[in-house]
Design a protein around this nucleic acid. Structure first.
Lengths: 245, 245
DNA sequence: TAAAATAAATAACCCAGATTAATAGAGGTC
DNA sequence: GACCTCTATTAATCTGGGTTATTTATTTTA
């Protein structure tokens, strides 16, 4: 649960009481294996699910049966928009690695949300960032050529992972298969592989056995035209990542 | 202002007091000519801008200077996410036709937003729908081939226009140039034109002099794989549009 | 109403990325 | 450790959609 509390605390500023209040909302803990579906597009979630370890994604299935990943869920992220908690979300959620998940009691949780609590503020921020990331995702997928698109996603993920304090120097855990990456980027797996080879040959990244290493952040971010402002993290970033673009 | 009140009333249910309260928040009215920029990506809007007549769009500019339209703003829609009102939005807003715009005083408006007012509820819905539309937009742009993509957008727009009561039988005002359409769909103008010709030859639509006519809704919606559930309009739709796919 | 500017339509050619197929690693599993 | 499955890699070929260019409406402006 710390991952979630930390995230809220990052965007806002929680009082100690609020932190324990979140703990009090914990309903249950679960594990899911990679590939398992957590929620369907038609279900209305009655709990709030938070991934505490591992990666998941929201995705939509197209007319031809292929999936488009519309956002990636890292530790501390909710599986569904909080705002959409009453409605069918229109997307499904799937585990991209083995994951641990904590469910919060929706009723209890919402009752904590007095309008100007730090928690409400943190959630509002988090929702702003979600929307903003989705806009950038759209730009990425429609306007950038394949290798640049991949580079941009890697920059985003490394930055997000750094924010939650899980990067190790210039490396990070990276459980996405190339197929998952291709579903996220709207590319064929074959072409995704070609693009990855390109980034490798240019000595920008290394990706091997679920470990991503950024070999040259400046070059990668420049190549990707990565501008982290859309993540709304302003000053709270390690110095090494500030050289963006 | 009725357009906005109607929209809120569609998603929620406003008391007469709430309706006049919205009126009281009106700060100023403006007109903009087609092509004018209303807001930049870096400005924090201190008013809430609502388009009362005409069309606008949110767009982001890519590395190569081309624009990607990320959502279309029809009469009654806000120019910016309400939730992002404190932050740089990350996109710009541009008029796609001559438009009229009403600005609300942000302070006054937000003070009306007691948590369980009909207005707060309407805004929450509206934000859910915005996010949902964006997800579908992403799917549309990454997974559907050009003609289908265009057909899907036309279905969405016709449905949204029907909801706000501005369609005339099977026709509607449609001010988008082919260039604007191509920016929305992530296609080149040339290929957009080819795709439009296809829909015309198949007798699905006619588009001439800013008037779009749906010649065969069933065929168009089927061809586009259009499923209006993502618009969250459930029962409130004219019978003629319910045959969706 | 003529001239200028903008939008639409079409043709010819090109290319980024898709598709198909075949091979080679890696991880699991019994 | 032999077998099976999933993942990654690479090559060969194809195609949807891009690019460039030209012509023909429409609109707008003067």
């Amino acid at each position: 649960m710390y991952s979630f509390i930390n995230k809220m605390n990052f965007y806002s500023c929680l009082t100690p009481e609020e932190k324990t209040a979140i703990q009090d909302c914990v309903d249950s803990k679960h594990r899911f294996a990679r590939g398992q579906r957590l929620t369907g597009a038609d279900e209305k979630p009655d709990k709030i699910s938070i991934v505490t370890d591992g990666w998941a994604c929201r995705f939509k299935t197209a007319h031809d049966g292929t999936d488009q990943i519309i956002s990636l869920i890292l530790p501390g992220d909710q599986c569904e928009d909080l705002s959409s908690v009453h409605y069918r979300p229109g997307y499904s959620v799937r585990a991209l690695s083995d994951i641990r998940l904590t469910r919060l009691d929706r009723q209890k949780f919402l009752s904590r949300l007095t309008p100007d609590s730090g928690l409400a503020n943190g959630l509002a921020w988090s929702s702003v960032v979600d929307t903003s990331m989705m806009g950038e995702w759209l730009l990425n997928v429609t306007r950038r050529p394949a290798a640049m698109r991949l580079a941009h996603l890697l920059c985003e993920l490394f930055t997000r992972y750094a924010i939650i304090g899980r990067t190790d120097d210039s490396s990070m855990y990276f459980p996405l298969t190339q197929v998952a990456l291709s579903e996220a980027l709207g590319l064929s797996p074959v072409h995704l592989n070609r693009s990855l080879q390109l980034l490798r040959h240019k000595q920008m990244v290394s990706l091997y056995r679920k470990t991503l290493t950024i070999l040259d952040w400046r070059q990668l971010a420049g190549f990707a035209d990565f501008d982290n402002r859309y993540l709304h993290i302003s000053g709270k970033l390690p110095v090494s990542l500030r050289l963006a673009s």
